[in-house]
Simulated assay, not measured.
Amino acid sequence: MVKALVATSATQGYRDNDYHWCVEGELVWIAPTCAQDRYDPDGGCGCGRGFAGLSSHRATTTAMVRTLHGITRADYIMVLRSSVEEQGYEIDDVEALADSLLDLVADLPDGAVLEHRLDYVQVRQRVP
């Protein structure tokens, strides 16, 4: 089992430029930020504040921490690798990327809702 980030509509509307185009519950990652949003998470593209869906290839500004039973680290790496390749990203070390995403949420409780603002990921809401 792994603890990872999944797309959620929870807390949407907290910021006036929130968006949620992912499939609820799909695995998400933090894709590289484009030139338009590089210095401004509220830039016109939205990638500076979004999590990218591994299945839908859409995005959301909110992600939830979930323990995924029946999914191993190797499974997670395979899914991540497949998705980033499908989307045309050239990631040299997908294993390291996967580990950084898994480490990011390792100590957070299931149900915590996170937001992404350029190089920062912060808890938006903790579940009681």
Rank of each mutant, 00 (worst) to 15 (best):
V105L: 08
Y19C: 10
R126Q: 12
G13F: 07
D40Q: 10
G44P: 07
D107Y: 12
V28T: 01
L104P: 02
G50Q: 01
K3A: 03
H20P: 03
T33C: 14
R38C: 07
V123L: 06
A4M: 01
M78K: 15
F51K: 04
V113H: 05
G43W: 05
G44Y: 04
G48E: 01
R124S: 11
V113S: 01
P41L: 00
V113D: 05
G13A: 03
G111E: 02
L104V: 07
T11K: 10
T61N: 06
A35Q: 12
G48K: 01
D16V: 09
D92V: 12
R58F: 07
F51E: 02
L68F: 09
Q12A: 08
I30K: 05
A98Q: 05
D92A: 14
A10Q: 09
M1G: 11
A112L: 10
G70Q: 12
M64D: 04
D37K: 02
A98V: 07
R66A: 11
E26N: 02
R81H: 15
T67P: 07
D119I: 00
C22K: 02
V121L: 07
Y76M: 03
R73E: 15
L97K: 13
Q87M: 15
D92M: 10
V6C: 02
L54Q: 02
V2Q: 02
F51C: 05
R81K: 15
Y39M: 13
P41M: 00
E24C: 00
D99Y: 03
G50L: 05
T62M: 06
L114D: 01
Y39A: 14
T72F: 13
Q122S: 15
T72V: 13
R15A: 08
W29P: 03
Y120L: 15
A7C: 08
H116V: 04
L108W: 11
A63E: 06
Y19N: 09
E90G: 12
T8G: 04
Y14P: 01
G13M: 05
E86G: 11
W29K: 00
T61C: 10
T62I: 01
V28H: 01
E95G: 11
L104N: 03
V127H: 10
T8I: 01
T33Q: 05
N17T: 13
A112C: 15
I30L: 09
C34L: 05
I91W: 06
L108T: 11
D92S: 13
P109S: 14
S82L: 13
L108D: 09
L5Q: 04
R81W: 09
G44H: 07
T8P: 00
R73M: 09
N17A: 10
A106P: 02
G111P: 00
G88K: 14
H116Y: 04
M78L: 14
S83L: 10
E90M: 13
